[in-house]
Design a protein around this nucleic acid. Sequence first.
DNA 1: CCGATAGGTGTAAGCGCTTACATTTTCCAT
DNA 2: ATGGAAAATGTAAGCGCTTACACCTATCGG
Lengths: 357, 357
Amino acid sequence: MDSRRQEHLWKPETVRSTISDVARRAGVSTATVSRVMNRSGRVHPATAERVRSAVQALGYTPHLAARRLMQQRTNAIGLISAEIGGPYYAALLRGIEEVTARERCALLILSISSLNYEDMDMALPLGEHNTDGLLIFTNSLPDDIVTRLHLRGHPMVMLHRTPPSGVAIPHIHVANQSGAYAAVSHLLVAHERRRIVLLRGPDGNEDAFEREQGYHRAHFDCGVEVAPELLVQGDFSEEVAQASITELLRRGVVFDAIFAADDESAYGAVAALRAAGRRLPEDVAIVGFDDVPLSRHLTPALTTVAAPIQAIGRLATELLLDQIQQGTPERLEERKLVLETQLVVRRSCGCTASSSE
Amino acid sequence: MDSRRQEHLWKPETVRSTISDVARRAGVSTATVSRVMNRSGRVHPATAERVRSAVQALGYTPHLAARRLMQQRTNAIGLISAEIGGPYYAALLRGIEEVTARERCALLILSISSLNYEDMDMALPLGEHNTDGLLIFTNSLPDDIVTRLHLRGHPMVMLHRTPPSGVAIPHIHVANQSGAYAAVSHLLVAHERRRIVLLRGPDGNEDAFEREQGYHRAHFDCGVEVAPELLVQGDFSEEVAQASITELLRRGVVFDAIFAADDESAYGAVAALRAAGRRLPEDVAIVGFDDVPLSRHLTPALTTVAAPIQAIGRLATELLLDQIQQGTPERLEERKLVLETQLVVRRSCGCTASSSE
DNA sequence: CCGATAGGTGTAAGCGCTTACATTTTCCAT
DNA sequence: ATGGAAAATGTAAGCGCTTACACCTATCGG
């Protein structure tokens, strides 16, 4: 056994030292060690020094789970989210981290890929036990879990999602309908397109629903009828959108513009169109939604509805931190924030050079 | 007080019920409740049912921190990372989640924006207390913390980073040098470029260092001298790269190609070149590194060294899970994996159409 | 010289949970 | 019936930490 240990460099003997190890080594009680670790209560400088060197020697780190059991604060907030990785996500995160960095609190992210959580009944790995509050940015987290967390008094903010009815959680949205309205109107009025494909977002998604409403309202206000075959699935996904548009092309459906419910699906549309040899924006004008950073670099540069993504992240985090620090504010149930969107005109809609880029 | 409660819909009274609340309500001991919750030990079906309905009624959820104190498993792994949000990151995550989904374990991500952690001495919010193992993908996490975690026997895998010396942690890399060598050789040999700018990665970054070596070795093997003014900072950042190239242009430095240490900096270079009216790839050929999904869509499509990003994520996670399940494998210290890279030739280097796209 | 005061430290009671072990109940072979 | 194995449940000892409280020393004004 001992000879084996020589063979390898440093097979760790898994020595996780506890507070009492430190106490013993420093010749004090655990209480004193704790006081030194937390800078709470008064400790004689000499003693403190002895403790500190014992900590050093033993490589001691407090066990956060145990600590959490006693204290109330974690100094961390959690973000529960699906679809980590997309470009939208990057901007959101930037907004969130802007605040967490300033407020010196850690950000823990739980990625719920639908597969991952749905069927396993294990407890949520992010919650009261390791965060002081939660940012919810997914539809995959069932309403009843949200409700339960809220009932237990865990601070939360929801992004792009309305809380279950009767549950007073602040939530942040963007002006989807007016944004879509502006985009589609632009296509209808400025470019006189009449057969505009809608690349719909996922079913059941609030944003998708509202954007679709904007699409219809714009048509209605212009007195243009919407042909049902123009409404196809985009699912906020490049692949799905590409397939949908390809299929439309194959079936010989005529259209002169596309309104994509998000930029990703716009990319898919561009790929499909290009593969079919259609000219952009002459043959088909295209407008997206979100204005993720890339869209500017696309060729042609994508006209799209800018959502203040980073601001959403910032705001949500600030709202959450407020809740954590000041407890539940008054009239919280009215805290529905809707951030304005803005049409960013670039080339893909058929407009010529603009100031941007 | 009571009248106030009527005013609002449901201001939660913060009732977080514990296991003993459930036990009391079901008329059993906490042990029995625990057994029901964990499906461990035998419990009379009728009792179990009573417990379950008490759980339901109270909206009870076990406190994971307390549970963690007793059990050893969390069923979650952690990913500690900087620069969440980049396109590289998305692919990596896909690889990781592929495995976590399959193995039914949760993924907790800790984003260390340099600001965030550096100066605050608070304990790492991800560690033995809430994960069974850690994926380390950042240079910002100091060596001594890594070492300590390892000494405490916490399973880890490091990505794109060599563990501190003497510490036997498996680590995964890509063949940076040979990849860079292939890319630069292609520029030198196939396209006869002679003044190739190097957009260097961040100082101290291992990948950056090795790619730079590949750049030099390719020049050496071709008998081409490297002009020092061609080595400029790219920092794996679009902005920095754009600034560097713009500056080069301003100073009138002559060059006919660029090797960017990663795709992001290649984008910056493209922007700078285009703003200056240079033609791509005729005036300046450009090659990147990583092959993030976007690079194919760039105009001109970016020639780049493909790193098997998703595979890295998958492999790393599998390695970690192995460690967790089987304990420290034999001869672990030799676990250095290097995944091959491959030059993907598209348009930006000056080659004409290829099979891809 | 004494009680008051304050700094420094230890004691021990939990936080919410799991689990080895003890105890009681059930039920079947005899 | 009845002894005893098997099933069901309870008891209580922690996991590693924090913190109210008690205790002990100096220190100091009166």
